[in-house]
């Protein structure tokens, strides 16, 4: 099953009707997909008419984007790797120190503590986000009333500035005065929980806010995939007497597997690289209890002037992430029909 065509003319709800007209995506999609198949027009010139386009115009038009990408992304990465092999302290000249920074970082127990927190935070956030959003998407794709309304509302937490909602939730999680504690107090569960102040629990409110803000986006991706599953399959299952839960696990999930894995992976990577929610809620504390790698890198570099080790840490965290990403991509491709 291809992960392409998430939206087609058969897409009900918000994708149909005027939304489709306003972007012009839907009507043309199904048709030109088939025209685009390799072999249908051969490689290159046959794919579509481009008699009026000189290659020069095409190439010039790509230049600004490629230059921006080269400077701000590729150039920056090369420079990070360079700084990671120097003793730069934020000003003055850089001296090469070879791989010393990597040795320092790999020997430090703080690195592993930070990596551990990052993995817990990212994995917990990704799993909770994907579980909640796929259940919500399954419900909406089964034609629950108000699907269009839910699509709009559930994405709100992801649109509001993360700093603003994180500060709100931080206040709500305070003992006694916080809204969450007061609600718990009213139903007899106690109003003195200092989750954020306790090193052993501080990560969970942060995971909660990350999931709360992230579900809307994951829901939209998964819903798009689920709406591609042919209705006839479900009808056949219903005649056979398969329960809703059974249909979800043995039909919906396998059918949307590639999008499902990619979404889980994206959520994991975003949490792994997250900064705003953690910084706004705990600044990495108490102590270093929630000091995920991006927070630690920021502290090392900007607050302590340890730019070399901080860069080494950034490079290592990117390597970990790319490894996870490759495994995930493989997982999404194996068994794919």
């Amino acid at each position: 099953m291809s992960t392409h065509s998430v939206i087609t003319a058969s897409d009900p709800g918000a994708a149909a009707g005027d939304a489709a007209k306003s972007t012009g995506v839907v009507p043309s999609r199904a048709r030109s997909r088939s025209a685009r198949r390799p072999g249908a027009g051969g490689r290159g010139s046959g794919r579509r008419s481009r008699a009026t386009t000189s290659p020069l115009v095409t190439r010039l038009a790509l230049v600004p984007a490629l230059v921006l990408l080269a400077v701000f992304v590729l150039g920056a990465i090369v420079q990070t790797v360079r700084i990671s092999t120097t003793d730069w302290v934020g000003f003055g000249p850089m001296h090469s120190v070879g791989l010393d920074n990597y040795r320092t970082v790999l020997k430090s127990s703080d690195t592993y503590q930070s990596l551990g927190v990052t993995l817990v935070y990212a994995a917990a956030s990704a799993v909770a986000t994907i579980v909640i959003s796929s259940l919500l998407a399954a419900a909406v794709s089964h034609g629950v009333k108000g699907g269009r309304f839910y699509r709009v509302i559930w994405f709100l937490p992801g649109v509001a500035p993360a700093a603003a909602v994180s500060i709100f939730w931080t206040a709500s999680f305070q003992p006694h005065s916080g809204g969450v504690n007061q609600v718990l107090g009213h139903i007899g569960l106690g109003n003195a929980h200092a989750w954020l102040g306790d090193a052993s629990t501080a990560v969970w409110p942060v995971v909660f806010v990350t999931v709360w803000a992230g579900v809307g986006f994951a829901f939209l991706l998964l819903l798009g995939a689920m709406e591609q599953v042919p209705v006839s399959i479900y009808e056949a299952a219903r005649i056979d007497g398969a329960s809703t839960a059974r249909q979800f696990f043995s039909m919906t999930l396998p059918m949307i597997r590639p999008v499902f894995v990619m979404t889980a992976l994206l959520e994991f990577m975003w949490a792994f690289n997250g900064f705003t929610t953690v910084w706004a809620m705990t600044q990495g504390g108490p102590g270093t209890a929630t000091s995920i790698l991006p927070v630690r890198i920021y502290r090392e570099a900007l607050l302590k002037g340890q730019f070399g080790p901080a860069s080494a840490l950034a490079v290592l965290s990117a390597v970990v992430l790319i490894a996870v990403g490759l495994v995930g991509v493989r997982a999404s491709r194996s068994k794919e029909a």
């Binding site: 701000f72 992304v73 150039g75 920056a76 990465i77 420079q79 990070t80 700084i83 990577m269 792994f272 690289n273 900064f275 790698l293 991006p294 890198i297 920021y298 570099a301 900007l302 730019f307 901080a310 860069s311 950034a314 490079v315 965290s317 990117a318 992430l321 790319i322 990403g325």
Partner: peptide, 11 residues
Amino acid sequence: VLPIVLMIVPY
């Protein structure tokens, strides 16, 4: 997939 954390020092 490249994280912003890789950019902050060179920027």
